[in-house]
Structures are given as structure tokens and as C-alpha cells.
Nucleic acid binder design. Sequence first.
DNA 1: ATGGTCATCTAAACCGGTTTAGGTGAGCGA
DNA 2: TCGCTCACCTAAACCGGTTTAGATGACCAT
Lengths: 358, 358
Amino acid sequence: MAEEPDVTAAPALPASGARPTIADVARRAGVSKGLVSFALNDRPGVKAETRERILGVADELGFTPSVRARALSVDRSFALGLVIARDPSIVAADPFFPTFISGVESELSEVGQALVLASTTSQRQEAETYRQLAGDKRVDGVFLTDLRANDERIGLLQKLGLRAVTLGRPDVSSPFPAVSSDDGAGIRAVVDHLVLLGHTRIAHVAGPADLLHAAHRRTAFEGAMTDAGLDATRVVETDFSAREGAEATRRLLAVRSSHRPTAIVYSNDPMAIAGIAIARRAGLDVPRDLSVAGFDNTDLAEHVYPSLTSVATDVALWGATAARVLLAAVAGDAIDGRTPLPTRLVIRESTAAAPTTT
Amino acid sequence: MAEEPDVTAAPALPASGARPTIADVARRAGVSKGLVSFALNDRPGVKAETRERILGVADELGFTPSVRARALSVDRSFALGLVIARDPSIVAADPFFPTFISGVESELSEVGQALVLASTTSQRQEAETYRQLAGDKRVDGVFLTDLRANDERIGLLQKLGLRAVTLGRPDVSSPFPAVSSDDGAGIRAVVDHLVLLGHTRIAHVAGPADLLHAAHRRTAFEGAMTDAGLDATRVVETDFSAREGAEATRRLLAVRSSHRPTAIVYSNDPMAIAGIAIARRAGLDVPRDLSVAGFDNTDLAEHVYPSLTSVATDVALWGATAARVLLAAVAGDAIDGRTPLPTRLVIRESTAAAPTTT
DNA sequence: ATGGTCATCTAAACCGGTTTAGGTGAGCGA
DNA sequence: TCGCTCACCTAAACCGGTTTAGATGACCAT
């Protein structure tokens, strides 16, 4: 009537050094492999006492299931993927990815999932990368960043059978949950702030038109300007690089002073910083002659001269949220329709009252 | 005597949709699974004709081996890991990681290996992260970045049985190959450049002393100064953040002008940019009153005002090289002793002749 | 006593590769 | 003709989990 299994008679521990397997646990607990699996996964059909005993033995042996074996038998990877397709130098200048990744990681590490990274340059390679990730079943789902107009990746991912979460809402019909940041509100806040300061000739240095969030910021700019009864035509498109930000600024300032913008709203911080440099070279003082605002509130924004007014977005939170949504999607639960993450205007030295007309 | 297998009699293709497995190839080629495996892995004991036939069938079916199944049976992951342990905001400001990663990826994607990323904040978590990566056998090897003085991770990784490559040479005995960048030469080039411009009071804003590459740059600075017969005591330590770069600059400039440095060498670009801002706030003109040099030649360096003299390092190449070395180490080939990657001084506007003594 | 139901558990198949032990037959020397 | 070696190939075990089919026995109603 030994309710408690006789420990002295219990089979020996597995050879030290090697990790215990489910078979070791089964042997030691005097049950079959299958039952151990059932007990560990909290499935019905295991007597309470037995379950306790199995869990005890597993604990005692320090058993943790092999991710690889599980991956093979349940056809899951327990990993999520992130494909970065921007030009390396632009990625480097923009703190988005590192911050986003740290947010993602904070969620993944808690549930024992891994993040697989892939980076490519051309879009040709990009599709190939997704294909490979899906073909090798390296990941269960992917984060879809830098959404483009009419994004072919949505269709591709469906065809490949990958789960996904999109950062922002695509302009094509998408079966994937989306997590958005309320960039539009941020841009509007900047424009309102500038209008309040008396600016009327406000320009916008936009990102690539085919990048949805860049286009969205631009649309928000135009909307806010129109709402304020102002001319919204001073817009220059760039590739988000500091170089093109500088070039755009040069172009915007190269008109006679009565038409020259008195304020420029940039679509990211590096471009704004480059813009300030160009203004100074043109003999303009920021903010006396020209107000400048950035976007994303980079670490550096606070430490340049003049310090940069910028729209703060909580990118790490965005990453964490996206990770939770994607994990749910992989698990089969569809959560979506979340309210966009808020943005916050951080006013610093680079914006001030519009110059009095000469 | 049918040399060519009769295709019409060949077993049907596997159910469309499902990926072909090695068993499908075997069936269709009329051989055993084992032989297919041998043929695909170029092992002896397969007749040339048979090998051809098997490869042909594999090709015809579009067979690619399952990474998972291979991982389970050969006990390898076909993935490399990168653990980022810096503070997220510092990682974000520094373009190192995105650039390094793109270099790594360029190598990995070609050989079908994946990059697994993990990021943590505290060092406590860091060890735990490596433990988990090793325990789950998520990766075959890791990149060891941001080497620290007396780095415990070297021992930990050995204990965990992980392969590794170190970025830079550790100060403790290490069984791992190392790939280095010749930061010291870069710093020396900056100092020589400044000395040539007539500067004598040159300061250094260093990174954390426990970070080996930061310490190395500092030592190089002190060595170059001493060699030039100059006082090398104007050194302030920081955590690499723009905030502390600004603070360090403030401190360095807060002495009477006859003792104030006329040039500051920063250990990275964001700090140098923040330093320029502080100088301007103090009423100093860069480079007239103060020369400033950065390190890493960030994208932004060219686009700030004044544009920043900086030491360019080819981080992407570093990543690619480290990846190749690590792949070799995982495969059992030890390659090391490579010459440090070169750096290049990029002279821009922020450095100029030392101010004439008043 | 007989059969049915249910809870509990075991045995074995399975995922898709690799690897080992062993089988087959051709070629060769005695 | 016999036995040996060798090249080529097959069958089966194995990696470490999950999952399905089925065995066992307790309990209950008939």
C-alpha cells in the first residue's frame, strides 16, 4: 500500500551532465512518457495524486521540455520574426528598431519565446526572406513594420500561412490584427502649437510617400493646416535620411524671405537636426527666424542646440503591445481594435513665436 | 535495364500543399530514407548514378530538409544569438547594433542560419538570458559584445557549453576566437590630428571604465597624449549617453580659460553632438574656441552644425567578419588571430587650429 | 454474473530528419 | 566451387517530445 513511491527503489537519476528528458521523469515516477506529457500540460485524465507526483519528480530532476522536440511534434517554432527592410544607414540613424525590439523582448522572454531577426535591403530579397522564414518554419508569426501603400506583403504572408501583426493599419484588406500609434494626433499637436505661436508659413519634410506611416503624418499635417486655414503645400518628400532632410531644408529655404517658411515640421528627429544645421548655414537663427520640430523624441533631441521640440511616441510600449497581440494571434485568439497608442508633444527650444514680418 | 526510372510508374507526388519530406523523395527515387540522407549530405557509399537520381528527384519535388527535424537529430540549432545588455535608450542612440546586425545577417542569410536576438537590462538578467538560450538550445553560438573588465560571461558561456566569438580581445583568458576593431589607432589619429593643429589641452570624454572598448580608447588617448608630451589627465567617464556627454562637457569647460581644454575627444558621436551644444551654450564657438571629435562616424555626424570630425569604423564589416568566425567556430574550425579591422579618421568642420593664446 | 461506462493509464505511432548495424550480391583468389 | 572483401544499399533505432488507440479495472445497474 505504498502511496508514496519508495524513493530508495526509484530508478537512478539520468547520467549527470545530460539534461533530463521526459523519459527520465517517466521512469523515475513509474509512469509512461505519455502520462508525463499529459500531467505537464495540465490535461484531463490524470489522477490528482499522480499529477502531483509527476510534477514533483520533474521539479526534482530540473526537467524542462526540449523546445526542439516540441517544435517538431507540435509544428510550432516558439519564436517570432522581425524582418527589417530599410536601408542599413537609415535604420542605424533611427532609434525605432532597437527600442521596439526591447519592448518586444520584454514580453517574449517571459513566455520563453525567442525573437528571430532578419534584415535585407531590397524588396526583392525581402519577399525571399519571408519565404525562407516560413519555409524553414523558423517562426510562428512576424511583425510587419514600415507598412507600405498597397503592401504586397499582406498577401504574401497569407499565402505563406504565417501569422502576423501589423504596425499600423494597412490600406488593403488584411486578416491580421493591427497595433497603431496615433501619429496623426502628434503631428496635429505640433501644427496647433506652431499656429498658436503665430506661424502661418509652415512646411513639412515628409518621409517616403509609399511608407504608410509617413503618408499618414503628411495627411495629418495637411489636415491640420487646412483646418487652421493655412496653405498646406510646402511639403517635401524624403527617404527619412539626415542627408535628404538637409537637402529638403535647403530647398524650402531657397525662396525669397516673404515666402520662406517660418516653421518646419519634420517627420523624424535626425532630419530635423540636419535641418537646423542647414538653417544655421543659411544664416538663420533657430528658433528666432525658423522654428523646427521633429518626430519621435530621440534621445538626442534634448541634447542638441537648440534643443528640439518633438513628438514623443512610446515605441517600447508599442513593441510590447504588438508582441502580446501577435502571441495571442499565434495562439488562435484574435485581439485587435485596440485604441492607438498616444503620442505626446514635447516642447523645447527649437520652436518659438513666429518672426514679426519685416 | 531501365537506367532511367520509369516516371509513369513512379509513386505519386506527395499531397500538394504539404512540403515534401525526405520519405517522399525516397519513395519516388525508389530508395530508402537513409540513402537519400547520405546522398544529400555528400557522404560516401552512394553510387554516382544513384546520387544523381536522388538529387534529381529532390530537385523535382522542391525538397528542402526540415530545419526542425535536423535540429532535433543532430543537436544543432542552425542559429546564432546576440544578447544586448545595454540600457535601451543608449542602444537606441547608438547606431552600433543595427549596423552590426545587418553585417551579421548578410553572412547568415546565405547559409540558411538565423539570428536570435535577446535584450535585457540588468546583468542579473543577462546571465539568465544566456542560460535560457543555452538551456533551450536556441542557438549554437553567440556574439559577445561590449566586453567588460574581467568578464564573467566568458566563464559562464564555457560552462554552458556555448560557442562564442568576442568582439575585441578579452582581458581574461578566453577559449573563444576574437574579432577586433582597431579603435586605439583611431583615437591616436584624432589626437595626432589635434596636436598637429596646435592643441595642447586636449580632454577625453570616455565611456564606462568597465567596458573594455571604452577603456581601450581611453588608454589609447592617454598613450597618444603622453607620446606627444602632453598632459593626459583631462578625462571624464560617462555611460555613453548624450546626457552624460553633455554633463561631462559642462564639467570640463567649467574652469578658468587658461586651463580649459581647447579640444575634446569623445568616445562616441552622440556625446560629441551633445558636447557641441553645451559649448555653444557656454558661449564658445566650435571649432574656433573648441575643437570637437566624435567616434563611430554616425550618419548624423556629417549633417550637424558644425559637421563632426569623427573616427569611422566599418561596423557592418565587423559584423560580417564576426559571423564568419563564429560559424567556423561552431563548425569546429578555429580561426582567429585576424588583424584588427582598420578605422579611418574623417575630418570635418568641428576641428580646427587651436585658439591663439590670449 | 453480465455488460456498460468511466477514469486512469500504457503502448505505440508520429513529427522528419540522421546514423548505425546489418544484408546483398558482384568480383576475386585459392 | 567456396569463401572473402568491398561497394552499395536497407531496415531500424534514435533525437524528445505529443497524441491516438486501446488496455485495465473499478463501479454501477440489470
